[in-house]
């Protein structure tokens, strides 16, 4: 892990009386970082504070060693931002729009024009680059948003819900593209999403936000390796007593895709399941060790795990 590109400590940001971030601390390391959390958790607020759009009430935020509140332009020229909302200039072709975005970032006009073609080819819009963006489909608009964020070759790319509105195939392609940017093109990125699978697929580290706080953070590998022992279980018989006894024994559970997913307590093993089942008069018809996914970590961080 290298030096953090962005660090924030005890950062608090409010929209009038509404506190959006309540004293959060964390860092974006080189590579791909995921910002995960439900809508309204404070992810976009963090990005907007990083871009200097919002002033923190308290705490500190530094990007590339600079304070965005003091030198926002210096910070912004090193960042590429792909907003969540639609953004294009009506009547402009994609190539003109991306070149214009490059020029606004400080590129000389000729360079910006030539680079806009390269970037549009890179995101897969090479053939459609002379069409006006108004005529694009949702997927193409997402790609052109990515192209305008990439055109000036930023050190850090901020992607706010980049797969919004995409069909499954489009989503796959977009995630492949984002993965390529992070791994092969050497551009660090922050992927802000409420979709766990997107983050899990692309990012190395993750910050889980909930209600303006960081609920969990760290490398995805270590978050999921520090997981608890879990089993997917299918039962025959009345499950309620079984689940109550498991809860009393310090275990948690949730409905899984295929039956129940039971998370054992720190010192428990699978024998606890058999013993409890015997005592409650139910039969275990299926037992399979399960890995605690990022979804489980996410739900645990949000305190949504136990469904009893």
């Amino acid at each position: 892990m290298g030096t953090p590109l962005v660090e924030f400590r005890e950062l608090a940001v409010s929209y009038g009386p509404l506190q959006a971030l309540g004293g959060v601390s964390g860092a974006f390391l080189p590579g791909a970082t995921g910002l995960l959390g439900p809508n309204g958790a404070g992810k976009t607020t963090l990005l907007k504070t990083l871009l200097g759009f919002l002033r923190p009430d308290s705490g500190s935020l530094r990007a590339f060693g600079l304070d965005p509140g003091v030198v926002p332009l210096e910070v912004r020229r090193r960042i590429g931002y792909m907003p969540e909302v639609d953004c294009h200039i009506g009547g402009m072709t994609a190539s003109a729009f991306v070149a214009f975005a490059g020029e606004l970032s400080g590129m000389p006009r000729d360079e910006a024009i030539s680079r806009s073609h390269e970037v549009l080819y890179y995101v897969g819009l090479g053939e459609a680059r002379y069409r006006t963006v108004d005529q694009y489909s949702t997927g193409m608009k997402q790609r052109v948003k990515l192209a305008q964020a990439l055109v000036h070759d930023p050190d850090l790319l901020l992607l706010d819900e980049p797969t919004n509105g995409l069909d499954p195939a489009g989503r796959d392609e977009m995630l492949d593209l984002i993965g390529d940017i992070a791994t092969r093109r050497g551009i660090s990125l922050v992927l802000c999403s409420h979709l766990l699978r997107d983050v899990e697929r692309v990012c190395d580290t993750v910050l889980v936000f909930n209600q303006g706080k960081v609920a969990a953070s760290g490398p995805i590998a270590s978050l999921t390796s520090a997981r608890r022992v879990a089993f997917d279980v299918r039962l025959r018989g009345e499950a309620s007593a079984f689940l109550t006894d498991l809860k009393d024994a310090g275990c948690d559970w949730r409905e899984g895709e295929d039956g129940l997913r039971v998370f054992l307590g720190p010192d428990a093993g699978p024998e606890l399941l058999f013993r409890t089942a015997r005592e409650c008069g139910v039969q275990i018809r299926h037992l399979r060790p399960a890995a605690e996914s990022l979804e489980d970590v996410f739900l645990r961080a949000l305190g949504h795990e136990v469904q009893a």
Binding site: L51, R76, C87, H88, G90, L104
Partner: peptide, 10 residues
């Protein structure tokens, strides 16, 4: 939404 394209630049 183009306002964001402008204001997220230097």
């Amino acid at each position: 939404g183009a306002i964001l394209v402008y204001l997220s630049r230097p």
